[in-house]
Design a protein around this nucleic acid. Structure first.
Lengths: 235, 235
DNA sequence: CGCTTCTTTGAATTTCGTCAAAAGGCGTGG
DNA sequence: CCACGCCTTTTGACGAAATTCAAAGAAGCG
């Protein structure tokens, strides 16, 4: 299920956490990293686990989801290549606050708490990068919170797919394709709505030619019209 | 409206951002700080402003609220004494992402971007503290996002007042009083519901004796029963 | 004492979640 | 290669929760 693999310094250089660091720092980071490979739909860690490490996706994708004491769950975030995950818990209470499950076959690297602190004290830029990454995510989650409280389901679903395209989209002949597979359930859980409501909107939009959904992969054909829906009220 | 005032190192020592620092560091921080005093309902900064500084409340309270392109707005957070605010923008895009307005007469301190970076490079613990603070807030906002998406209005309002009591509550003869004044509108905006819905629940609970609302100050009398409402479904 | 702001309460409307069931797609194993 | 089964998606009907609109009452402030 989880196989150890080698990791190249060029992989490390592509991570947001180590942006702008000198080659020696990248070498240090690579030397301290534990690299692994996971199959699709494999759990990397679970909510409540201790032994927290700082993770980053090299290739593939990860779904970070959070379940409440009641049944309800949301997708906190999807992690695309280059992004880190699970690291905030190192600085708060030492337990993962959410589940991490691969969306597809995935390569990841991770660092222990001690090693990350070592890297941060040796290269303060790592701490600065981390503040920037967490800060951006804080602002993004705050935006989503505002949307969840003030906007309707159609707008939230539209914004969610736009954000995903921004985060992990690559251009194809017929539009912007989102880099990892998403079920309707995933779209619902990141939009803050139900499977049924998300399905209704996506199907409607597909019939209008705004997007295409093929084999759990979304392709946005007319992003500007989806943007319209995100801003206006209509369904 | 805004008057400059002196600031004592003991005030600095009480700030979450400078926790665990040696006295010399506190002195440096105090020397670089700009301290000011604001009357009630005064705007400290506005969404979109540049010239970002890192702020902290010494005494009083601040409402951080965010408005979308549509009319809708939410309260992102209330800032109690000792807490920082407005600092994340220093590491992201250099513009305040929200409005900051005083809830009551308030003393605050603030640092320029250059001075904060200076303090961080001289005392790395400041950067670590900042990561911890932002990390905690990220987790808190994620919790609220999950609640907004999966729980009903009654539960969200109940959780909001419990969180506020936790954050800024002090015990009195008849229960836990929240340290700053809150209108129904404020409670609604932080619960992700409307003024009317929030009012209905609060008056219902007040009639049941779970809490008291006097002159815009909330006092939680039976926190355990409010906790019940937050966990169960009933109104 | 009058004005403004805040709060309460009622009634109608709407959105969205819930439940149920059928149809589709994909991979696996025979 | 086909058939079977499981997972995913679609679609309809219903109901409940909460927003919206309206208006009156209460409270603080000058």
């Amino acid at each position: 299920m989880a196989g150890d693999i080698v990791i190249a310094p060029t992989d490390i250089a592509a991570l947001e956490l180590f942006r702008g660091l000198p080659p020696t720092a990248l070498g240090d980071a690579a030397a301290l990293a534990r690299a692994r490979h996971f199959a699709r739909e494999t759990r990397i860690f679970s909510q409540g686990d201790d032994g927290v490490r700082a993770h980053a996706v090299i290739a593939g994708g990860v779904r970070i989801s959070q379940a409440g004491s009641d049944g309800g769950q949301i997708v906190v975030r999807f992690i695309a290549p280059g992004e880190m995950f699970g690291a905030v818990a190192l600085f708060t209470n030492g337990r993962y606050p959410a589940d991490a499950v691969t969306l597809a076959a995935t390569r990841e690297a991770s660092w222990s708490e001690a090693d990350l602190h070592e890297l941060m004290s040796r290269y303060p830029q790592v701490a600065i990068n981390m503040i920037r990454v967490i800060g951006r995510r804080l602002q993004e989650v705050q935006d989503r919170l505002r949307e969840a409280s003030t906007q309707r389901a159609a707008q939230r679903v539209a914004r969610a797919v736009l954000r995903l395209a921004q985060q992990a989209g690559h251009d194809t002949s017929d539009g912007t394709a989102i880099g990892f597979p998403l079920r309707r359930r995933d779209v619902a859980d990141i939009s803050g709505t139900t499977l049924y409501t998300a399905s209704r909107f996506l199907t409607t939009w597909e019939k209008r030619g705004l997007l295409v959904s093929r084999n759990r992969h979304l392709v946005l054909c007319r992003a500007s019209e989806i943007q319209q829906i995100a801003e206006d009220a209509p369904d």
